[in-house]
Amino acid sequence: SSIAGMPPDQVLLVLQGAEPPILCARQKMSRPYTEVTMMAMLTSMADKELVHMIAWAKKLPGFVQLSLHDQVQLLESAWLEVLMIGLMWRSIHCPGKLIFAQDLILDRDESTCVEGMAEIFDMLLATTSRFRLLKLKPEEFVCLKAIVLLNSGAFAFCTSTMEPLHDSTAVQIMLDTITDALVHYISQSGCTVQQQSRRQAQLLLLLTHIRHMSNKGMEHLYSIKCKNTVPLYDLLLEMLDAHRLH
């Protein structure tokens, strides 16, 4: 389905319908966790979630009409940001905890068993608190997540870290349409125009934090790979390597 001309309410419905399920970890390790068991659980979850993320992306209006090259570029660029915003959304009602899966809920202190992990947990928990304070709505969340995917790689050619998109205009149209849907949703809140503008800015400013956390997380995952103590799954490796290649 094409996104051009799609009414904002329909965009919101499609985005909400595309949402992936909350998964189960199943391979529960015994506590207390070690660096190896913790990373084995987290990387296994990330690998499973990546498959659902690809299914989600294919349901975004306009995504499958992009060239395969552009689909790959966007997913490679944004995958950890998309995982992180989903994690924070799942955790919004549980202060101090991160809900990686229905049966994998971790608090900050548990992350200290992995070197360098507590710093990333702290950033994720702080940004989740910001989501909670802003009372982020499901409609706003689905827009932000789609914006993260489309924005992350859209202007990357400026930094020469990845190949340019074949059709950046098509991605920009998708981005504009989803931004319009977000603005439309906020406009129905009954707030003043000034408050609406402020909320749009507050929500979009969160994306800078998500990009920062993703960069930190990518470096951390790469260090885990280099230690060679936790076997990484093929799809996760492929996505991680894409960042190293760039």
Binding site: H52, I54, A55, L68, V72, L75, E76, D234, L235, E238
Partner: peptide
């Protein structure tokens, strides 16, 4: 290395008409 070779799994999951979840 061609793009296709570099991104084997991602390409397969994106290209196939079957849901990536079912494929995996």
């Amino acid at each position: 290395t061609s793009l296709k070779e570099k991104h084997k799994i991602l390409h397969q999951l994106l290209q196939n008409s079957t849901s990536p979840v079912d494929l995996a």
